[in-house]
Amino acid sequence: MKILTANRLMDGEAVWLAADHSWAETIAHADVATNADAEARMEAIGAQGIAANLVVDVNFVDVELIDGKAVPIRLRERIRAAGPTIRRDLGKQAAHGAESAA
C-alpha cells in the first residue's frame, strides 16, 4: 500500500495527495493506493501537481494500515507527517494534533 507525498512549492510544507485530488496538510487525509492502477492514477495527479507548480519532490511512501489509518513504514516518513520528535510544539503535531499522528 502506498500514499503519495510532496512538498508544497510556496512554503515547503509536507503534503499528501487526498482522494479529492487536493494536497492535504495532514497524512490523515491521504488517499491510499492498494493496487498498481491506483498508483498509476495517483502518479498522474502528482505529475499534474508538479506541472501546475503546486508541489515539488513528489514521492510514493509505503504504508501499512493500523486501526484503519495509513501509517508509513519508515520512521522518516512518520516524522515528516508529525514534526520533529524533539519539538512537539512544532510542525503538524502542533498545528493539527491527532490528524498528524502517523
Binding site: 512538498n7 512554503d11 515547503g12 510544507e13 509536507a14 514534526g83
Partner: peptide
C-alpha cells in the same frame, strides 16, 4: 541549483 547556490535546501518539513 539556483536556490542551492543561495543556501536554500528542501528538508523534511520545509525549506
Amino acid at each position: 541549483p539556483l536556490r542551492l547556490m543561495n543556501g536554500v535546501y528542501l528538508q523534511l518539513h520545509a525549506y
